[in-house]
Design a protein around this nucleic acid. Structure first.
Length: 502
DNA sequence: GTGCATCGGACAGGCCGACT
DNA sequence: AGTCGGCCTGTCCGATGCAC
């Protein structure tokens, strides 16, 4: 192995890039190179040492029986061959050789026997050296198979009933082979490789990849192996109990929802993918779930009037000392946009300068997965409320380029699951707690706007279908998925929301 | 020291396909 | 078409680390 790494036991590389994104890219490239080298080295070592199993006598016998069955069931194996034909006579000529090999140790291996044996070794992925004892043993078994096939052929030619002279080819032995094959575990399938294939095919959102990677890792950690085919329902049950009873922070346990719909769902889905792609025979996690108490709600999820005005008032105060211009801009405008459009906070924090434009004479914001992500993977354009325009939002962003609420230059090369736009949303959540002093843990600091938007929309009888569109909910009925909500329509409905008087 | 980036983690929200 | 539940995604919070 060491020789394949230039005789070294350590690999040291120095990063040459001067900035963080560059370094991260360089590091990723180096890691990829290293892993590729390690993999190819592994393959080389594997090829040298075999790594492949040496077959047991039982396995070899079974393989010869399987060859025999295939041979005699082949369409060209019939009793019509003319005994005078060349192939027939040559087989007859080999008969004596085969007989000698099958019964005595020192005999020469006929070339056909060697070919069949070699083919068998390759087919089964065995490690058997030509000329080794195992090879000779296999050759003798193959010779017995050839003799039995020959005997069968002679019986067919002479229209004699088929009879098995060699016990090795008895019906009972074929039956036992089938039983053993059923009992034998399937080829090793690692749960990590299944997950990787699932990711490659499904291409889930970055947030999902981030979360599920942890769950799969937690599973492997718990069960102590990586073999997906070896997982039993009892294993999964033990994991379920462990997850539901393990104390997490503050002496609490995970909720049933967390266990069922994140940890178990991830495992179940990945195993299910394995089953549907014929890599596994059963989904060991299927149907396993925790039954826990329902969560109780003791207040409305939307901001109260007092909370809403507290946040909006705080947005007008000068921002905390030291925050970047982007964060200051976020504090000033994001709460207002959330209040008047009911958008998800990160749909707003990912807005770019180009996403604010005029259409049909109406100023709109474009919320699009291109900027980062949207939950329903769809684009939408939503009018800005007159109150936002009057406060000078357009002027505030008119000179900006690119993302409005975070600075791409600050990017250090983090994964897609932790984008800067989300961090801006998290920053605002903290700001709501500490600066705007909305501290009730039963209401979410940003998401509370979405609930409130819906509540207010009902109060002013906003058109329900347009409201769904504005908030970026997938259409509830088939009909609502057709057609568009033009800016003039969203403008009309959005301006039904009464102005916040501070 | 501090602001921002990153990651780990719990869980709420909500899409969407299956089932009537 | 409406309902339901599983799957998936986003929100929120905590901890830690780096650069200025």
């Amino acid at each position: 192995m060491r020789a394949l790494f230039g005789g070294r036991s350590e690999v040291v590389k120095t990063l040459s890039a001067v900035d963080w994104p560059g370094r991260r890219r360089e590091l990723n490239r180096l890691i990829e190179d290293f892993e590729a080298t390690a993999q190819s080295a592994n393959r080389t070592v594997h090829a040298i040492t075999g790594g492949k199993p040496s077959p047991s006598p039982e396995l070899m016998e079974a393989a010869v029986r399987s060859w025999f069955r295939e041979r005699v069931e082949r369409p060209d194996f019939d009793g019509t061959a003319d005994p005078g034909q060349e192939p027939f006579t040559s087989i007859e000529a080999q008969r004596a050789d085969l007989q000698r090999l099958a019964t005595s140790l020192g005999a020469e291996t006929p070339v056909t026997t060697a070919w069949i044996a070699q083919d068998m070794i390759e087919q089964n992925g065995w490690s058997v050296e030509a000329g080794s004892n195992t090879f000779r043993r296999l050759s003798r078994l193959v010779a017995r198979g050839q003799l039995a096939a020959l005997g069968r052929q002679r019986q067919d030619l002479a229209l004699l009933p088929r009879r098995t002279d060699d016990e090795m080819f008895s019906a009972e032995n074929f039956r036992l082979d089938e039983e053993r094959a059923k009992a034998r575990p399937a080829a090793h399938v690692s749960i990590r490789s299944l997950f990787a294939k699932y990711l490659a095919e499904r291409k889930p959102a970055a947030a999902t990849e981030k979360a599920w990677s942890r769950f799969i890792a937690a599973w492997v950690e718990f069960i102590g192996h990586d073999d997906a085919a070896a997982i039993t329902p009892d294993d999964v049950l033990r994991w379920k109990d462990h997850l539901a009873s393990e104390p997490i922070a503050a002496g609490q346990c995970r909720s049933a929802k967390t266990v069922n719909e994140t940890y178990l769902a991830a495992l179940r889905t990945v195993l299910g993918w394995g089953v549907s792609n014929r890599l596994l025979s059963a989904n060991a996690a299927s149907g396993i779930r925790v039954y826990g108490p329902r969560r109780q709600r003791t207040r409305d999820a939307s901001f109260s009037d007092g909370e809403a005005t507290a946040i909006l008032r705080a947005s007008l105060r000068s921002p905390p000392i030291g925050v970047s211009s982007q964060r200051a801009l976020a504090i000033r405008w994001v709460p207002w946009i959330c209040a008047y459009t009911g958008a998800r906070v990160n749909e707003v924090t990912q807005l770019r300068a180009d996403d604010i434009y005029q259409e049909e004479g109406v100023w709109v914001i474009r919320i699009t997965p291109e900027a980062g992500s949207t939950k329903n993977h769809r684009y939408r354009a939503v009018a800005l409320h007159n109150h936002i325009l009057e406060q000078g939002f357009l002027e505030a962003v008119s000179n900006l380029r690119g993302p409005l609420f975070y600075d791409p230059a600050q990017y250090r090369g983090g994964k897609k699951g932790n984008p800067q736009s989300k961090k801006c949303g998290e920053f605002l959540a903290r700001w709501v707690r500490t600066e705007a002093k909305v501290t009730d843990p039963r209401v979410q600091p940003n998401h509370g706007w979405r609930h409130r938007f819906k509540t207010v929309a009902r109060r002013v009888r906003m058109d329900a279908e347009v409201c769904e569109y504005i908030q970026g909910h997938a259409g509830r009925t088939e009909g609502s998925k057709y057609g568009e909500q033009p800016p003039s329509v969203t403008a009309r409905e959005i301006n039904l929301i009464p102005r916040y008087q501070l």
